[in-house]
């Protein structure tokens, strides 16, 4: 999903607020606990949770503090899973209770392939409407495999209530100047890329 959340490489942001003042938002620990409870009770999984944040209305996503995004995802999924109703939540507050919008669908894994450490690979030039863990800045780009992970649930399916097959990810090393030619500080960027997102370069 090409949404606001896919921030890597976006320009126009100012300095990082590296030494922020402590703040006391007492509702933030409450939200953290409610979301942890919902995951523990299997009301939703981590992929559904992440995607529910991503499908917040764009202006809401960018303007909401971190824990307001957690709250919105938790409430949205509790409504979508039939645990509570949007009307019930709205009746409990003075004002509206904005929820995330439905976006999808999901998709199954691609046929299994094997990549080797040191092999040059390409990220498929695919445009996924639903949840995907491929940041836009590596789409269609080439890099080198530096490590293989254990199998993980495929997020593009797991976020959409589909049957989930696990597959490994590959830590792929990209050169920043190949991702953003003439427009980046020189570095190596590593991304944990699901097997289904990759193809051979040969």
């Amino acid at each position: 999903m090409d949404g606001m959340h896919d921030l890597g490489g976006k320009q126009g942001f100012g300095r990082i607020n590296y030494r922020p003042e402590p703040h006391d938002e007492t509702w933030e620990p409450l939200v953290r606990a409610l979301s942890a409870l919902a995951v523990k009770k299997k009301i939703y999984n981590m992929d559904e949770y992440r995607h529910a944040i991503e499908r917040m209305a764009p202006v809401h996503y960018l303007s909401a503090p971190y824990y307001e995004r957690v709250l919105t995802a938790a409430a949205t999924l509790c409504v979508e899973k039939g645990i509570v109703t949007a009307e019930e939540l709205a009746a409990l507050v003075d004002g509206t209770f904005p929820l995330s919008k439905p976006i999808g669908p999901g998709r199954p894994n691609a046929p299994a392939q094997k990549f080797l450490i040191g092999e040059t690979v390409r990220v498929k030039n695919e445009f996924v409407s639903g949840h995907v863990r491929m940041p836009g800045y590596i789409r269609g780009k080439q890099g080198v495999v530096v490590a293989e992970s254990p199998p993980y649930p495929f997020p593009d399916a797991a976020a959409h209530n589909m049957q989930v097959t696990e597959e490994p990810t590959y830590d792929v090393r990209f050169r920043s100047l190949e991702l953003w030619p003439d427009s980046a500080d020189e570095s190596f960027i590593h991304v944990g890329v699901f097997q289904s997102y990759l193809e051979k370069t040969g």
Partner: peptide, 24 residues
């Protein structure tokens, strides 16, 4: 009425609803 309620209120509403369901 059409403005989002404060986040603290919304968090409390979700807490209330989950408590009422016996989930929390």
């Amino acid at each position: 009425q059409s403005q989002p309620a404060p986040a603290a209120q919304r968090a409390a509403a979700l807490e209330t609803a989950l408590t009422a369901r016996g989930i929390l």
